[in-house]
Design a protein around this nucleic acid. Structure first.
Length: 489
RNA sequence: GGCGGCGUACCCAAGUGGCUAAGGGAGAGGUCUGCAAAACCUCCAUUCAGCGGUUCGAAUCCGCUCGCCGCCUCCA
């Protein structure tokens, strides 16, 4: 069995993963900024986070997962004269920033549920906890004090300076263990060779970044701080919340690869500037979903498709999950309707196989021939999360079971599904419940009697009647079998 | 201007020096079948954007060309 290995952006190599503390893995993943619905590209990132977590668990690790909800706004661009994204939506929708954040947070959680993405427990649902929970979904606005504390440490270490427009991190002075520019491989001078943005005149150096922003009276969300009323810089929330729940050095930090040059670079600088300790041991970045512009699925042109667009097209959200699983997290995934429909087909194949499993196969041990699939699946997973190969193994396992007419693979399949997470165990349970529905049984028996009597006219009429109730009939050697009609085309 | 990456069949997508270039979808044919569905079988890239080079051997390494994309610090 190969050990779990993952590509570490810090070293640009696939490395064997070894956590700091035995079987416990501390994991921080960048969460959403809640001012718009999450589009499919964003959701791919969260499917990846979920898959990484599950792959770690498959290897016996206990994952402590922290994910942030960015509910304090950051600026849309310099050109907007400092307009905050959340406040922009708030003004457009005539709501308060917090109401906007709540609305889109709820929508995000609903989308994750439909994709079977397991989020950490929401801090707002945790009550009366004496010690910090192992895993948590936490909001920036609930951790302002932590951020201020961290900024104070940075200032005390001589790495932050206060100006009229805010507190900035002094990049020139910092010489941390990881080194500025290490993630992006760009030296500071290289980064500014092509100067693009104007910067605040208060900054000592153009690449210094804000820890705390001051004197922005039009900004709706403001808090008191030792430096005056204002709001936190974009990067500080991740450092503060990661440290609050996971400690000063965390095992894994993940995010989209767009975060490499700025967000994560700055996170490292400010975190290590405060603690003097390495902040992250394995930095993991996922690639984008591309081609959404031409996907012809979003209702309004120019908008990236969202999960509701798939649902409206009668595509099971789990097909999207499987589509993501079918590509490596480090490769761009080209999205189009054909691709997601192909995934839907595979989803149906696995569900259909599961539903048709006989009790004897579920009660028995798996066939001996299934063992090699388990090893191949595990090796693929451990090889830098090679999920497309893992999926191939899963499909081949089912194909061989069908070919041999030997269905004794349920335990293996279900174990794979702890990572792929299509809810096959739920599918199995549902198929059992369906078969015991009394009213349907009556109709089915009538139809079967008609078939035996070769009264196919009546048989087909009854089929239509059953279908109208939302069920589908399949005639098998063992007799008719009904399943709930699915939205999958 | 800088940094990083991508281009494998009609579509999605593994493979990054050496068995016949994984797997899936679509397509074609077949078995089974009252019909339908499912399932299974067979076929489906002498070839990996193009051109050179290194090597006994390259989709995999090097160079150039073409095309595409992400990021560059108060930008998810």
């Amino acid at each position: 069995m190969k050990p779990f290995s993952i590509y570490n952006t810090l070293t640009r190599k696939v490395e064997e993963f070894v956590p700091r503390h035995g079987r416990i893995v501390t994991y921080y993943s960048c969460g959403p900024t809640v001012y718009l619905p999450q589009h499919l590209g964003n959701l791919r990132a969260y499917v990846f986070v979920d898959t990484l977590k599950r792959a770690l668990r498959f290897n016996g690790y206990d994952v402590r997962h922290v994910m942030n909800i960015t509910d304090v706004g950051h600026l849309t661009s310099d050109a907007d004269a400092g307009e905050d994204k959340i406040e922009k939506t708030a003004r457009a929708e005539g709501k308060s920033p917090l109401a906007v954040a709540k609305y889109y947070t709820d929508q995000f959680k609903r989308d994750c549920a439909r994709l079977r993405i397991e989020l950490p427990p929401d801090e707002e649902s945790i009550t009366g906890a004496v010690r910090p929970p192992a895993s948590i979904l936490c909001r920036a606005t609930n951790h302002i004090a932590d951020m201020i504390g961290l900024i104070e440490r940075i200032v005390r270490n001589g790495l932050g300076y206060v100006t009229a427009s805010g507190v900035y991190f002094d990049v020139e002075k910092w010489r941390g263990p990881s080194g500025m520019g290490r993630l992006s491989r760009q030296s500071l001078t290289e980064q500014h060779a092509g100067q693009r943005l104007e910067h605040s005149a208060d900054k000592r150096s153009p690449h210094d970044f804000a820890l705390w922003v001051l004197n922005q009276p039009h900004h709706l969300m403001q808090w008191d701080s030792p430096w005056g009323r204002g709001y936190p810089g974009w990067h500080i929330e991740c450092s503060a919340m990661a440290m609050r729940y996971l400690g000063e050095t965390i095992d894994i930090h993940s995010g989209g690869l767009d975060h490499i040059p700025v967000h994560h670079e700055n996170e490292i600088a400010q975190s290590e500037g405060a603690t003097g300790q390495p902040f992250v041991r394995y930095f993991v970045h996922n690639a984008f979903l591309v081609g959404m512009e031409g996907a012809k699925i979003s209702k309004s042109a120019g908008r990236f498709p969202v999960l509701d667009d798939l649902v409206a097209a009668a595509i099971d959200p789990l097909a999207f999950r499987l589509l993501c699983f079918g590509a490596k997290y480090r490769s761009e995934l080209a999205f189009n309707l054909d691709a997601v429909r192909a995934a839907a087909k595979n989803l149906g194949y696995l569900q259909e196989f599961t539903r048709s499993l006989p009790e004897s196969a579920i009660g028995a041990d798996d066939a001996a021939w299934a063992a090699e699939y388990r090893e191949r699946f595990h090796d693929a997973l451990n090889n830098d999360l090679n999920t497309p190969v893992a999926l191939a193994v899963m499909l081949e396992l089912v194909a061989e079971a069908n070919r041999r007419q030997d269905p004794r693979v349920w335990h293996t399949l279900n174990d794979f599904d702890q990572v792929v997470n299509l809810g096959l165990a739920h599918e199995l349970r549902a198929s059992r419940e369906e078969a015991t529905d009394a009213r349907l049984q009556g109709l089915l028996e009538q139809r079967e009697a008609a078939r035996q009597a070769r009264d196919y006219q009546r048989s087909d009429d009854l089929r239509r009647e059953i279908e109208a109730l939302g069920w589908e009939i399949k005639d098998t050697k063992e007799g008719p079998r009904i399943t709930r009609r699915r939205g999958t085309p």
